[in-house]
């Protein structure tokens, strides 16, 4: 089923991760993603639909994998979502960023923070101090060590999934695992 046994996650899903759903769900879907990557933008609504379709059987985890040399705003966007996490708004920021992929420069990031009720001054300070840079880099390196070779890269129940990730393909794969 297009799983790569050579590439398990080097860091299993853990308390540091951002997750939606129960860690005990039958299916754990981990995405390594870049907020400025158009393919990740395409994957974003597909993952949402997958969450709707499988409900509490699916746990979704997002890890940062910004390709900052080709996507100039990707790293700051990743940091912005991590800063938003300090205010309990990680997923709100994650969604906002994917819904506004073409507008990820600093003024826009500030606006999104403000819209989420985060103090813009404090938010910018945290970005300027690169408070979350290490976190983003740690995610990135865990991806490299797990064989991430581009974005988005998906891992289903700990193993790298190399098949197509359009809605029907992904749905079929998850259904098959659940039927096992």
């Amino acid at each position: 089923m297009n799983f790569s046994n050579e590439y398990p996650l080097s860091a299993s899903v853990n308390a540091q991760d951002h997750l939606q759903g129960s860690p005990n769900a039958q299916i754990t879907l981990v995405e390594y993603g870049d907020y400025q990557c158009p393919y990740c933008g395409q994957a974003y609504p597909i993952v949402k639909k997958m969450q709707e379709a499988f409900g509490d059987k699916l746990c979704f985890v997002f890890r940062n994998f910004p390709l900052s040399q080709i996507h100039e705003h990707a790293f700051a966007a990743a940091e912005a979502a991590e800063v938003a996490d300090d205010y309990g708004k990680f997923w709100e920021m994650h969604d906002t960023l994917y819904e506004h992929q073409r507008h990820l420069d600093l003024p826009h990031l500030m606006q999104y923070a403000q819209d989420l009720g985060i103090d813009a001054q404090e938010f910018v300070e945290k970005l300027r101090n690169n408070e979350k840079a290490q976190r983003v880099k740690t995610d990135f390196m865990s991806g490299v060590e797990s064989g991430v070779n581009g974005t988005p890269s998906f891992y289903i129940n700990n193993y790298k999934y190399d098949g197509p990730w359009d809605y029907n393909s992904l749905h079929k794969v998850i259904e098959a695992i659940l039927a096992h």
């Binding site: 390709l67 900052s68 040399q69 080709i70 990135f140 390196m141 490299v144 991430v148 070779n149 581009g150």
Partner: peptide
Amino acid sequence: GSQLALYNELLDV
């Protein structure tokens, strides 16, 4: 393109 883009991120490492 994506292979070299990945290595490009890792030159410091």
